Computed example of a mutant assay.
Amino acid sequence: MSNVSFSINIPTDSNGYFTLNCPYCKNDFKILSSEFKDSEIVDMYCPICGLIAEFNSFYSDKIINKAHNIAKNYAEDLMYQMFKDLERNKNSW
């Protein structure tokens, strides 16, 4: 099976910031989207509690749910196509 990748647009506020959530203290904070795009962030620290973690652990529940929904919809589309193709092949027997 091949790997599939998705691009997920993270919504920003009117000032160009998007919200992150600390995996330790659970507080929300914002980061400027242009700073995020311009650098390759691997580790990040929470500006509230100061603890460091991998950047991807700071995604908010909203962003994680959006990613899960995109992946779920993709999987459902694949299953639909597979069963649709099976139905066509069954009718040609």
Rank of each mutant, 00 (worst) to 15 (best):
I41R: 01
N27T: 01
H68Q: 08
S92C: 01
S34P: 00
L20W: 02
N69A: 14
N15W: 04
E40A: 03
I48Q: 01
K26S: 09
G50R: 07
K72H: 10
G50S: 07
C46N: 05
K66H: 10
K84P: 00
F83N: 12
S57E: 15
S5W: 12
E54H: 09
N89H: 02
M44C: 01
E35K: 13
I8W: 03
L32M: 11
L20N: 00
S39Q: 10
E35W: 12
V4F: 14
K30G: 05
S14H: 06
K37G: 02
N73S: 13
D61L: 10
V42Q: 05
F83I: 01
Y24A: 07
K62E: 15
E40C: 03
K66C: 11
C46S: 04
F18M: 09
P23I: 01
N3C: 11
C49R: 08
A75G: 01
C22E: 06
V42C: 05
L86H: 00
Q81Y: 09
F6M: 10
A53Q: 11
L32G: 00
K90S: 10
K37Q: 12
K66Y: 06
T12G: 05
E40T: 02
A75E: 13
K90F: 12
F36H: 10
C22I: 06
N15V: 01
D43G: 00
I70N: 01
L86S: 00
F6V: 02
P47A: 03
K30W: 03
F55W: 11
A53M: 04
A53G: 02
P23M: 02
S39W: 09
K66N: 13
S2T: 08
N15Y: 11
S57C: 13
K90Q: 07
S14N: 14
I31A: 08
F29A: 02
N27G: 00
F29Y: 05
L32D: 11
L51T: 07
Y74N: 03
G16P: 08
A75V: 04
Y24E: 05
G50C: 13
S92Y: 03
K30D: 12
S14Q: 14
K37F: 12
I52Q: 11
D38F: 04
F29W: 06
K62R: 15
E87P: 00
S57Q: 14
Q81P: 00
E76D: 14
N91C: 02
A67G: 01
A53C: 11
Y17K: 04
C46P: 10
